[in-house]
Nucleic acid binder design. Structure first.
Length: 428
RNA sequence: GUGGGCGUAGCUCAGUUGGUUAGAGCGCCAGGUUGUGGCCCUGGAGGCCGAGGGUUCGAAUCCCUCCGUUCACCCCA
């Protein structure tokens, strides 16, 4: 039997799980402060949802989905991204009909699945959190999700991330630009790299953000999308910029920024950490005004972003912004004879019920050995019950930090410890 | 799916032109006189050298295949 995790997945061991829980809590509290409600959708959906939503010709749908037939012969797929499921729930529960409450603002956080070759910052089961605003077409919504992302990273101590911003225009101007791009590139496509040759047919916009230096050189003088978007899209975009200026969110307009999903319209953006390696985007998003309708709902505009939790945590670690969290208990209870283990177990339970983190030594070993364990796990206090204590109905309380200790009546232990720990909290 | 790097103790890694019983540091366990952790000292446990095949008198070392892992491409968080 294989005793390893499947490729591209990993176990979160207790120390790391503490950090994950910490960052998840931060994320949730910032989202709630902005008025977004959490939504938890299933981890799998009907396959058609993603085929329709993300686009049949995208790489995700073509080759990266975990798709299987269930026992009823239905095709289901492990969700590769979060937006389509949120849109599905929005339609299913008719959240557009909750009149008088304004736009629907939702956030999610959880695992996503894509069958790709793993590399730095890329996994087969990975975690994303993100927000969606459904039912608001104005540019303030675009600005809000970008500001929200930036504020969230700031809250976590990340200030030097780059925001890249662009507009793809509405389907009309996008189509015109696509045509212009095709004409420009088809004139002399021989110098482009192999993958760009392919892109030219499937998704010409993608040629713009090819990393190959030769392609970059060849497309240097390429027409900018900014010159092709209609006055309405242009006005929308400049309003987004003005909102961001107003709240001091710095950004760079990157007319080469194109995103992979078919559903994006108008505003698109990415937030980059340059030190992350090849997968530098920790956040990506934009507007998707046609998606709800495409999925069978009423015409509803939408805008949102998704951010990768693994990449965020890597960034936080790089910048030294992770807190020092530990599983160290407040109390470690040591007993020197099996005889008092029942009573000792009761004492530990009493401490725990009082909210004092307590670990009991399961085995009776030498005092020295048990003290070593107490030290190793970082207990603040060690309680010792030995022959002498047992005879006198007392317990020794040893403070590990300064090696001071005292003996206390059995019944007094919870209060004494409670007082000590409260005092310590006050001091630090 | 394609290409490169790497697989030796729980972890990080040495291991010479192929040559006896494969090492170190850290960690772990037990001791250093009666019931006290950290520092120090002593001892101990722990390895199908990723797997399989081949070359050779002899392979951790050379060759092949597979597996795993990692980085990159494609694409994305």
């Amino acid at each position: 039997m294989k005793t390893t995790v499947p490729r591209g997945t990993f176990d979160l061991l207790p120390d790391d799980a503490l950090l994950w829980a910490w960052v998840e809590e931060k994320i949730r509290s910032v989202f709630r402060a902005y008025g977004y409600g959490e939504i938890r959708t299933p981890i799998f959906e009907h396959t058609e949802l993603f085929q329709r939503g993300i686009g049949e010709t995208t790489d995700i749908v073509e080759k990266e989905m975990y798709t299987m037939l269930d026992k009823g012969g239905r095709s289901i797929t492990l969700r590769p991204e979060g937006t389509a499921p949120v849109v599905r729930a929005f339609i299913e529960h008719k959240l557009f009909a909750t009149s008088g409450t304004g736009a629907c603002k939702l956030f999610y956080l959880g695992p996503m699945f894509r069958q790709e070759r793993p590399q730095a910052g890329r996994f087969r089961q990975f975690h994303q959190f993100g927000v969606e605003i459904l039912g608001e077409e104005g540019p303030m919504a675009d600005a809000e999700v970008i500001t929200l992302a930036v504020d969230l990273y700031k809250e976590l101590g990340l200030c030097d991330l780059e925001v890249h911003l662009n507009s793809l225009g509405c389907p009309e101007c996008r189509g015109k630009y696509r045509q212009a791009l095709l004409e420009y590139l088809s004139a002399d496509s021989s110098g482009l790299c192999k993958s760009c040759q392919r892109r030219l047919e499937r998704n010409p916009l993608r040629v713009l953000d090819c990393k190959n230096p030769k392609c970059q050189e060849l497309t240097k003088e390429i027409p900018s999308i900014q010159d092709y978007i209609c006055p309405e899209c242009h006005a929308h975009f400049s309003k987004v910029c003005r909102y961001l200026d107003e709240v001091g969110v710095e950004y760079q307009i990157d007319s080469r920024l194109v995103r992979g999903f078919d559903y994006y319209t108008k505003t698109v953006f990415e937030i980059i950490n340059q030190d992350l390696g090849a997968q530098s985007a920790i956040c990506g998003g934009g507007r998707y005004d046609g998606l709800v309708e495409e999925c069978g709902g009423p015409p509803t505009s939408g805008v949102g972003f998704a951010s990768g939790l693994e990449r965020l945590l890597t960034t936080l670690e790089q910048k030294g912004n992770l807190p020092a969290l530990s599983m160290a208990p407040q109390v470690y209870l040591v007993m020197l004879n099996e005889e008092y283990s029942t009573a000792g177990y009761g004492l530990a339970a009493a401490l725990r019920r009082q909210g004092i983190q307590t670990i009991v030594s399961f085995k009776v070993k030498s005092l020295k050995s048990q003290m070593k364990t107490a030290d190793k796990i970082g207990a603040a206090y060690t309680l010792i019950i030995g022959e002498e204590e047992w005879q006198n109905k007392k317990v020794t309380i040893r403070k590990m930090f300064d090696s001071t200790q005292c003996q206390v009546e059995w019944a007094q232990v919870p209060q004494v410890l409670g007082r000590e720990l409260a005092e310590e909290r006050r001091r630090f």
